[in-house]
Nucleic acid binder design. Structure first.
Lengths: 206, 206
DNA sequence: ATTCTTACTGAATGATTAGTCAGTATTCAC
DNA sequence: GTGAATACTGACTAATCATTCAGTAAGAAT
């Protein structure tokens, strides 16, 4: 019987829960699934999280925080506003089987009826929006971008990507990385009145 | 005890199920909820649908068919391609509390793990895409629109609206009908290289 | 009118699973 | 080393629900 301090164990459980949600979907995860995968008792999970609902919310919060940390790392990197913007958006964008996205589609569905969860998502989104609009503002200051309302522009861009995520994750439409990138560059270029080449477009479309 | 023929009863049950899904969310609907609301026994539901899973899939199929009927009515109406396109997209677009959209966000989540349901959604989306791309093609023939790939253009437009639906339904961001319409007009105008006024824009933005 | 088919019900069943709790073992404080 | 706090478990409980089934009655067929 391994004993850990509560803090470390909590994180371990959260990580496993996120993994299970990815695999089985949010509504199908059972406490026993998480416990079995960690080779501990179900009671251990309840001991640390009180209820299943809290566990799920905490797990999604944990996933959101990790995503935001990564976003922070991207935004703090060196590069022009255009480069940073594209780096952030490309990371946000669904790619491949978009496994990372499934959890958020699940979360959308659950959040419609769960206020606490909705708050987590709203906050996550607010931070994304803030980050994106900040680089847009920086670009506007530099004179490379043009935008009368960077927050709205950010909303439009992320909404577009959310919609594409649905196509890929739900409809299993295989949009290639190259296509997605091209669409994104096109959209950003138009939205911010900037040339596609400034966004790192490989070759202009004919 | 009222007796109805199977066909009519089925439809009645499907309508009530859709209503219940809207109210409670897909994963929370119980057979007893549907039965109680109709003042019949739970066994009646199973008698007509075999399993709950089938009931839910049939209910979403029913909802999809009704949406497509409405789409057909719009597309068969009189009007220029530009008018028809905007009518279709504005009906697709989430409005107000977007109650009608909740069911589809639920469906997205469920469809990621349910092949039968995914097929329903893929088909629904395929038909939307076909309809939208058809009017685009018609507009291109008329010389009002420009588009090198109407199917891809349709995907981009509906994806954008799906993303906005998430904002409204999940994040409860109140995007006004006017704002949404303005964003949509802007996007369509750019996507199809047409003037906003041709799309029924009330006043140009300053 | 009688039979047959079909729509329907009430009551039971069985499977699932979140959460409880009394107790055990480990670590920590001193 | 002793005791207290803490992490943890096994076995149980209680509740929830989909589904079954034996039977009932409405309506159709003859």
């Amino acid at each position: 019987m391994k004993r850990m301090n509560a803090q470390a164990r909590r994180v371990e459980v959260l990580a496993e829960t996120v993994k299970q949600i990815r695999e089985k979907g949010m509504q199908a995860v059972r406490i026993a699934d998480v416990a079995d995968a960690m080779d501990v008792s179900s009671a251990l999970i309840i001991y640390h999280f009180e209820t299943k609902e809290r566990l799920l919310i905490d797990a999604l919060t944990y996933a959101a925080e990790r995503d935001l940390l990564k976003l922070g790392r991207i935004m703090r990197g060196s590069g022009s506003p255009a480069e940073l913007l594209m780096a952030a958006l490309e990371w946000y964008a669904p790619t491949g089987q978009a496994r990372g996205w499934q959890i958020w589609v699940d979360a959308w569905s659950a959040a419609m009826r769960d206020v606490a969860l909705a708050e987590v998502l709203v906050d996550l989104h607010r931070q994304w929006n803030k980050a994106i609009s900040s680089v847009i503002d920086a670009g506007v200051l530099d004179g490379v971008f043009q935008s009368s309302n960077s927050l709205e522009a950010a909303t439009r861009l992320t909404s577009f990507l959310d919609g594409l995520a649905v196509r890929m994750v739900v409809h299993k439409e295989p949009i290639s990385r190259a296509d997605l990138r091209a669409w994104l560059v096109r959209q950003v270029a138009w939205e911010l009145a900037v040339d596609q080449s400034a966004l790192g477009a490989v070759a202009p479309e004919k």
